[in-house]
Simulated assay, not measured.
Amino acid sequence: MDMQHAGERAEDILDATLNAIKPPVKWDYNTPNEVACSTGLNLPTGSTSVHRNRYISTKISEQRRGSLLGVVQRHWEAQGFTITSVNSDRAMPTVNAKTSDGFTVSLGVGAIGNVWLRVTSPCAAKSELTFPEGTPGKPGGPSGLPDLTPRDESPFWSSIEPVKP
């Protein structure tokens, strides 16, 4: 697998995950990056891990965070992903998983209530990379870092009422 294929696979995982969230949330691209892979002795291997990120711009209330993480976790399990860890912290919960082809996926809540989604590829052969239009810092996207503060209201996800069973 080369870096372009890894980036495309990461975007597919992100798209499918966000499409599984009902009612839908609004989201934006976050800054991607690539990290050189190395041996346990910090020697380069000539391959690179590709990281793609999104952030949810919909305000997810504290009362609905568990529901969001549950929807995503069930979607990942249905896709055959292995859940590797769950942090049930009330303020900043996270869920992490791994795909059968070695990608790691994470969904978490940050300190300001911002919700992020990240996919990291296994080490991939060096190649050129393309990015979806709107990716920060890339052609067709905004320059600079995005504002991760949730700003979009949702009658469901922003509600402070507990979810009814």
Rank of each mutant, 00 (worst) to 15 (best):
N33M: 10
V35Y: 07
A36L: 08
A36P: 11
A36M: 11
C37D: 15
C37N: 12
T39V: 06
T39N: 07
G40P: 04
G40D: 08
L41P: 00
N42E: 09
L43Q: 13
L43T: 09
T45S: 11
S47F: 03
T48N: 08
T48S: 07
T48D: 03
S49G: 06
S49P: 00
V50D: 07
H51V: 14
H51L: 10
H51W: 10
N53S: 11
N53A: 12
N53W: 04
N53K: 14
Y55P: 01
I56R: 03
I56G: 02
S57V: 07
S57Y: 02
S57C: 02
S57R: 12
T58N: 05
T58G: 06
T58A: 06
K59D: 05
K59T: 12
I60D: 03
E62A: 12
Q63P: 00
R64Y: 05
G66Y: 02
G66S: 09
G66H: 03
L68Q: 03
L68I: 01
L69P: 02
G70S: 14
G70W: 02
G70T: 12
G70I: 04
V71H: 00
V71N: 01
Q73H: 00
R74M: 02
H75W: 09
E77A: 06
E77F: 01
E77W: 01
Q79R: 14
Q79M: 13
G80M: 08
G80T: 08
G80K: 10
G80E: 10
G80P: 10
T82D: 13
I83P: 11
I83C: 11
S85A: 15
S85N: 14
V86D: 06
V86Y: 12
N87E: 14
N87V: 13
S88M: 08
S88Q: 13
S88E: 13
A91L: 15
A91T: 13
P93T: 10
P93M: 09
T94G: 09
T94R: 15
V95E: 04
V95S: 02
N96K: 15
N96F: 01
A97K: 10
K98S: 14
S100F: 05
D101K: 07
D101N: 15
G102P: 09
F103H: 13
F103A: 06
V105R: 02
V105L: 13
S106R: 14
L107V: 07
